[in-house]
Design a protein around this nucleic acid. Structure first.
Lengths: 199, 199
DNA sequence: CTTATATTAGAATGCTTATTCTAAAATAGT
DNA sequence: ACTATTTTAGAATAAGCATTCTAATATAAG
């Protein structure tokens, strides 16, 4: 009986995601959302509820299509060092326009520590990243085969958290327009250092 | 002849700074500014010009009283390792309320790469930090006394930028409420690694 | 004490915002 | 083809915003 929905849900979420990445939650107006999603506020409110609901869904979409995808693409079937290096280098924009910013970083900063509409999504995204890093670290320890309780293994207790921190820092600088060249040099070095060689 | 100004300029800027740190530029309303500065919008506009001007001045004040002060306090008259370690640890809040966030980090994320009212101030703040880090690195190389063109010295070409990145990443996680305990552990380790010992 | 001048507080203004409402359009079963 | 139902677009609404205006207040020189 009912009339059919005309728009594609993922297309709408992708558009919303983009606006929120560029302008933040507060900075994105409903008019911006209409433009970027291609549907009118009427449909937006009818299908999602409100701006906050759209944001929550867009953040979830970001985790699914960007964060998770990135971790899987770069950290699977590769040496941990190669995987981590390529993952981190992929954060640097090759074109000057591609610096929309990371929705996790931006939302963590915008909403802060108190309970908010971003809390769960940002937490989830951070966990996806940190878990991915941890798997690479575990793999690295295994490959260097000197036992789980080795000095080498112990030196890596906090490496996943450190990588998450570095990841966020890179995204802050990239968002501000820091030149990729300066960053890529130390990224390579930094990941290499995980093997314990300080060359 | 004229009536005297009643408020203290630095007190007003300190209040404005606090609000902008907590809520961002867009998130801070003029009503918020009235509350936090203690003076009315009339005086605010009469003395500063507008919200944007207040922000620019507050950001400058932040660089002067927080960033510069921090770098000087922690990185002077100390071993580079001790100095850097204490500087980074000082970013972790000891009380659950002290997480207003860093105005540099927050503004870099909020305003992004395009030219904006934050561009100059954030750039200045980042430079203060990076220069401070560089001085500590130089000092470290000198103390380890193996010549300027040594392998050790070369391994530090990008360390200042790396420390700035780490610094920003820490502030993102702190802003989101990440537990200080987890962070302090790897910070100590990370700074120690600058000496080249991988223990 | 008067006067010229500047600051101050808060009311007034006009614009933008998120959200709701309304009427038209589209669908699928009868 | 009609009807019930839902989506859609955009106008209407109400609240919040930054900014300007206004009148009262305070000051210091004459």
């Amino acid at each position: 009986m009912p009339r059919q929905i005309e728009f594609d849900n993922d297309t709408v979420l992708r558009g919303a995601m983009q606006v929120f990445r560029e302008r933040g939650f507060e900075g994105a107006s409903v008019k911006d959302l209409e433009r970027s999603t291609g549907i009118s506020s009427g449909s937006l409110y009818n299908s999602f509820g409100g701006k906050e609901d759209i944001f929550v869904e867009a953040l979830g979409h970001y985790n699914k299509t960007v964060v998770r995808e990135r971790v899987e693409r770069f950290l699977s079937n590769k040496s941990p060092i190669k995987g981590l290096t390529s993952l981190f280098l992929s954060l640097l924009p090759n074109t000057p326009d591609g610096l929309h910013g990371c929705l996790l970083t931006n939302s963590a900063v915008e909403f802060g520590a108190g309970k908010s509409i971003a809390t769960a999504g940002v937490h989830e995204g951070f966990t996806i990243l940190e878990d991915g890093f941890q798997r690479s670290i575990d793999q690295l320890i295994l490959e260097n085969g000197d036992g789980v309780r080795s000095k080498f293994a112990k030196s890596h207790i906090h490496s996943a958290k450190k990588l998450l921190t570095l990841y966020q820092g890179i995204l802050v600088l990239v968002r501000f327009g820091q030149s990729p060249k300066e960053l890529s040099a130390f990224i390579k070095n930094e990941i290499k250092q995980l093997t314990g060689t300080n060359k």
